[in-house]
Lab assay of single mutants.
Amino acid sequence: QIFVKTLTGKTITLEVEPSDTIENVKAKIQDKEGIPPDQQRLIFAGKQLEDGRTLSDYNIQKESTLHLVL
């Protein structure tokens, strides 16, 4: 699982696999929060994550925290 922290300070927990794409993660966030993926920007280690890449591409491991910017 990974954590996604929103600007409001809320933390969302997501069940993911390293092979999941960023697009996939955004879809999971939409399921939980109702935020359309095209409004979501995910930041990890100061980098904006691209939809077509996977979590493992960015070396995002379990218990990692991503930041969600709208």
Rank of each mutant, 00 (worst) to 15 (best):
T21V: 05
E63K: 07
Y58C: 04
G9D: 05
H67F: 11
K32V: 11
N24L: 15
L42T: 00
P36E: 07
I29N: 00
D31P: 02
Q30S: 11
T21E: 03
E63G: 15
Q48D: 13
V69Y: 13
I12N: 01
E50P: 03
F3P: 01
Q39M: 13
K5W: 05
F44H: 08
S56R: 10
I60Y: 02
E63W: 09
K62H: 15
K47R: 11
N24V: 14
G9F: 04
I2C: 03
T8M: 11
I35N: 03
Q39Y: 09
F3C: 06
E23N: 09
P36M: 06
R41Q: 13
L14K: 00
L49R: 00
I29F: 03
T8E: 13
S56D: 10
G34W: 03
E50G: 04
G46Y: 04
T11P: 04
T11R: 07
I29A: 01
Y58S: 03
P37T: 14
N59W: 05
E33M: 13
I60K: 01
T65Y: 08
L68E: 01
K26F: 03
P37N: 07
K47I: 14
T8K: 11
S56L: 13
Q1Y: 15
I29P: 00
I22T: 04
P36F: 05
G9S: 04
T6F: 15
K10P: 05
K5V: 15
F44T: 02
Q61S: 12
R41E: 10
I35W: 12
N24Y: 12
R41M: 14
Y58W: 02
E15Y: 12
P18Y: 12
L55F: 03
P36K: 07
A27W: 10
T65I: 15
P18A: 12
L42W: 01
E15G: 07
P37K: 15
P36Y: 05
Y58G: 01
T6K: 05
A27P: 00
T21F: 08
E17S: 10
T54F: 07
V69G: 06
T13H: 07
K5A: 07
Q30V: 04
L55S: 01
E33H: 08
D38R: 10
Y58A: 03
V16Y: 15
E50N: 07
Q61A: 11
K32M: 11
P36T: 06
G34P: 02
I29G: 00
S19L: 09
P18G: 10
Q40V: 10
I43N: 06
L7R: 09
R53L: 12
L42M: 03
I29Y: 02
P37I: 14
D38L: 09
T6I: 13
T54G: 03
T11Q: 07
I60L: 04
L14G: 00
T8L: 12
E17D: 12
K26A: 02
E23V: 09
D51A: 07
L14E: 00
L70A: 10
G34C: 07
P36S: 08
K10D: 08
Q39G: 06
S19Y: 14
K5T: 14
I12P: 00
K32E: 07
Q61D: 09
T21D: 03
V69I: 13
I43Q: 08
Q61G: 12
Q61P: 13
V25Y: 01
K5N: 06
R41D: 08
F3Q: 05
S64C: 08
R53V: 07
F3T: 07
V16Q: 02
I43G: 03
Q61V: 12
K32Q: 11
T8G: 11
I12S: 02
D20H: 06
G34S: 05
I43V: 09
Q48C: 15
A27V: 12
T6G: 07
D38V: 09
G52T: 10
D57S: 11
T6H: 07
A27Y: 13
K26M: 06
L42C: 01
I60C: 03
E23A: 15
Q30A: 14
L66H: 02
Q48I: 13
F44L: 05
D20C: 09
I43T: 09
T21K: 09
Q61E: 11
N24H: 14
V25C: 06
L66Q: 01
N59V: 04
V69M: 13
L66C: 01
V69S: 08
E15K: 07
N24A: 14
S64D: 15
S19F: 12
